[in-house]
Design a protein around this nucleic acid. Sequence first.
DNA 1: TTGTAAGCGTTATCAG
DNA 2: CTGATAACGCTTACAA
Lengths: 380, 380
Amino acid sequence: MKIMARIKDIAKLANVSPSTVSNVIHGRKNKLSPELYEKVQRILEEEHYVTHRGAQMLTKQGSRLIALILAYSRAEEESIVQDPFVSSIIGAVQSALQKEGYFLLLYANPDVELCTKITLEWNVEGIILLGAKREGYYYLRSLNSVPVVTIDTIFFPEDHSYVNVGLEDYQGALEMTRYLLSKGHEKIAFLSLMDGMDVLRKDAIDNIRYQGYLQAYEEKNLAADRSLCRNLSYDGKIRQKQYREFYQEGFWGCTALFFTADIMALEMMSFCMDQGLKVPEDISIAGYDGIFAAKRARPRLCTICQDSTEKGRRAVTELLFLLKEEQDIGTCKKDIRLPVFLEEGSSVQALRERQPSPGLQLHLQKESEHRDREKFLEEV
Amino acid sequence: MKIMARIKDIAKLANVSPSTVSNVIHGRKNKLSPELYEKVQRILEEEHYVTHRGAQMLTKQGSRLIALILAYSRAEEESIVQDPFVSSIIGAVQSALQKEGYFLLLYANPDVELCTKITLEWNVEGIILLGAKREGYYYLRSLNSVPVVTIDTIFFPEDHSYVNVGLEDYQGALEMTRYLLSKGHEKIAFLSLMDGMDVLRKDAIDNIRYQGYLQAYEEKNLAADRSLCRNLSYDGKIRQKQYREFYQEGFWGCTALFFTADIMALEMMSFCMDQGLKVPEDISIAGYDGIFAAKRARPRLCTICQDSTEKGRRAVTELLFLLKEEQDIGTCKKDIRLPVFLEEGSSVQALRERQPSPGLQLHLQKESEHRDREKFLEEV
DNA sequence: TTGTAAGCGTTATCAG
DNA sequence: CTGATAACGCTTACAA
């Protein structure tokens, strides 16, 4: 390691005391004569002086460090950061923090205890917590009292003292289902992405979306068929098998598929095309998220768009607010829901214009012969 | 801030001295009796003791911090992290570092001086530098002597003392061009993505790829038309205009388009489809990168696949090697080139099977009438 | 086997 | 306006 000039060295070079140098570093012009200030300033630059953040952390200055914690249950995988949302949030957070003179410590681990430990070790001044469950959030809060802003955590009505940034998930699913129903589809499959958990788990985002889906049926005085709902695996290979099975089951007789993530919708779309089916002639497909690939796909994917960059920006804004106002986070209860909007796409077609190909019709026959969906469900 | 138990506090609780506690923390069992060790260990856990990284940085222990610096010239934009490569590299780096007990400081800024300052302030033990030019690398090295591994930096033959992780860029472009030529295409446009810079800039990746493109022609004893080469803008909106112009120019009479990034290839593909053209019947399109959207698109994009996660992993491996071996980086010159492979896709078709649609033919006529490509080029 | 003390670099307080 | 000094928390060499 190259020898670095420290305050003491600068002080010697300038024939002043360390505290004078410190005053110059902090721009306290009123504390010394302009000439001296200039001189010290010059030497500081000449010597490429940089502050030692470790030493600074030891004083009351604080660390200027913000932790971005990815606590997804699948956070141990490298791929988590590649998720388009996660990465756009990282980008937005990094950029917003830098403007305010903060630094970003990135840590991904499903173990909240470990994450908490890291935030304590590094004396971070604030935390943005991504993909955690409410229990995880409360655990973190119980040990670390710095401001925390969560993204996409589901809280319960009885919860208090949290700041969460999320989406109008309910509204989005409601609108999409309304839209599909308005196009004449009545058998709409609801397909979510969750690690083996039940879609009905109360604190899962996809459950909120499912409620929106049900609500849309209710509004039309239709009975939603609750068996038209399924969780797909996070594992891409398993998912591929699941698409095939679902296809072989004739899509359970559904005319439209509503996926809670564009990734799945696109995968299914290309799977269908590979099987010789036509989208939307044979089957209508809708997604959720509005990722790049969805806009580029042809037929263009009909989806619910969210602005995930805005999520990151907003999280930082809220965190900085807590930091600056020194507001007691214990008294806040803020559930920010960013708007989403439906983007039409030719992957969805009105039912009356539908022209199923012979291939699909064969499958539909098969399905009515088999009726062995129970077996299929068991396999999962 | 909640009051945290420090070594001194633990020492008091256990009726031992601070150094004894420190010995326990560092697992130096031989330094004290097993009973005492157990006892201190227990109290440590009870009090949720965590080390203070700032204080530790002040000792010779080092910071355990690795900086991942994104020094792309467009790094001030939030979107940089969203780039599928960048984000998969971040993911891989984060995950690999964590396993080794290092922490990740993420910093994105086109200003290398600033980046250098950050690495010095935080006393990072190593640096992974992404998207920097060689000058930037050498500037960083001149001020910070910790190990640095670059990713995707282009060095010159006369350069020395660097460790760089890159791709077989030349080979990839060579193979793709060979492939397109083997399919009978002779007029192949080469379309790169660079911020207004000349594709011929010696230290640009796309220039390396361009050399591969030229080489493929040479191998076939064909004269490559050097005017069939163009840089597109990083700005998505401008790019959209450029696609339109290029289309209106009848693709300069090319039958195949080779883009140096899948993003562009996909954008062009959907643009064509929106104009009523058929891919590959009217025009063959090839990309570079092998991103998710490319695999999902139909027709599937023919592209050169790279494993960007492996890039990140490899960068960490190399960095850890430098760190552990305490090898003098001044003596290394390592240019690691990860393999790429061509993935066929139906977006490319043999020329003889080509069936241009009337729409395209009209455009081709237009083009031969106008011959005003110079004007077009000026506009850029 | 255990304890003491110096040192790391910065900042804030207080005295000159 | 300037300078000495203590404090932050940890590590390690050395003394007991």
